[in-house]
Amino acid sequence: MFYFALISSVGGLLLMCFERWHPVTLENVSLLLGVGVTATLAQLAMTRAYKVGRKLTAANLSYLTVCVSCLLGALVWGDILTMDSLLAMGLIMISGMLAGRR
């Protein structure tokens, strides 16, 4: 968990160097806190799932986060899903089902 947070922080800092900085305001601080808290809880849950659960099932479900985030982007923010993204999501789901059959 520590190394994930460390690498994510350093990587995020490096990526921020190439973008325009936006100040933290009262309007966006709740969003930032929400993202931070939910990301921490999700990482703790995934770490526990790999520790006590079936590892192959946990891995397959973690790959589904790509599909869920794409669908949420389309539903909540109006992102457009291209045929390539739909095919990629289908490939992720099919490979997870095939890997889970073992």
Rank of each mutant, 00 (worst) to 15 (best):
L44H: 08
C70R: 00
M16L: 12
L61N: 01
I7Y: 15
L44Y: 14
A5G: 04
S69N: 04
S8N: 13
L13M: 06
L26V: 15
L13R: 00
A42H: 09
C70I: 03
A39R: 02
A39T: 09
S9Y: 09
L13V: 08
Y63H: 13
V76P: 00
G12H: 07
R48Y: 15
L33I: 09
W21V: 09
A45S: 12
F18G: 07
V10Y: 13
C17M: 11
L33Q: 02
S9D: 06
L71S: 00
I7D: 04
Y50G: 05
S69V: 08
G73A: 07
L15H: 10
A58Y: 03
L64W: 08
I7P: 01
V66W: 15
A45L: 14
A58H: 03
L71A: 04
S69K: 01
Y63M: 10
N28W: 03
A74M: 09
G11V: 07
L56K: 06
C67I: 11
M16F: 15
L13S: 05
L14D: 05
K51V: 12
E19M: 09
T57I: 10
S30P: 04
R54W: 07
Y63C: 10
V29K: 02
F18P: 01
R48A: 12
V10C: 03
A45E: 14
K55V: 10
A58W: 02
Y50F: 13
A42R: 02
L44F: 14
L71G: 00
S62L: 11
V68Y: 12
S30C: 09
V52A: 02
L75T: 15
G12M: 04
T57E: 12
V68R: 03
L56W: 13
P23V: 05
G11Q: 06
T40Y: 15
A49M: 14
H22S: 13
G53W: 07
N28R: 01
A59E: 04
S69D: 05
L13E: 07
V52S: 02
K55C: 07
K51T: 10
T40H: 07
E19K: 04
K51G: 05
C17P: 00
R54F: 08
W21K: 03
L26W: 15
L44P: 00
T57K: 07
A49R: 00
S30N: 10
